[in-house]
């Protein structure tokens, strides 16, 4: 008897899980969640594409970018003291043109040998120098 009882309860259990599964499948919000929760992924695609195409079109290798960065730093640090780590050099695009944008935080002005009368800037002031070099490719 007990064995039979167990078999019946097992069957009922199976049936209940089946029903629950079917119900949850019908009521499932998965498809809806997919639509509502998905943010505008095409904007991601567009932005990423713009960036990658800019680099493709400029035909600058990452190595050349790094070299340019180092050389720019050397030239600029002849005139002003800068935070070498904070230099941000990147490409930006506008309609049909690509701009090389450098964001260079200046720590203080350098005392130039020729110009000794110049007042030294107070320490710790951080200025931002922005250079934009535009060129069309």
């Amino acid at each position: 008897m007990k064995l039979l009882d167990r078999k019946i309860t097992d069957k009922i259990n199976d049936m209940i899980t089946d029903i629950v599964a079917t119900c949850s499948r019908i009521l499932s919000t998965e498809a809806k969640v997919d639509e509502t929760a998905s943010y505008d992924s095409k904007d991601d695609a567009k932005n990423r594409l713009k960036l990658v195409l800019m680099h493709d079109r400029s035909q600058l290798t990452p190595c050349q970018m790094e070299q340019m960065r180092e050389e720019l730093l050397d030239v600029i640090s002849r005139y002003v003291e800068i935070d070498r780590e904070a230099l941000d050099l990147c490409l930006e695009s506008e309609t049909n043109t690509i701009a090389l944008v450098a964001n260079i935080p200046i720590l203080r002005a350098k005392k130039l040998e020729q110009d000794e009368t110049q007042e030294p800037e107070p320490e710790n002031t951080v200025e931002v120098m922005e250079a934009e070099v535009e060129s069309s490719f």
Partner: peptide
Amino acid sequence: MIQANNMLSVNDVTDILS
């Protein structure tokens, strides 16, 4: 998919490639 903003639109592509 374009209407749901999940695919680059025709204008997006022609803009990017001009």
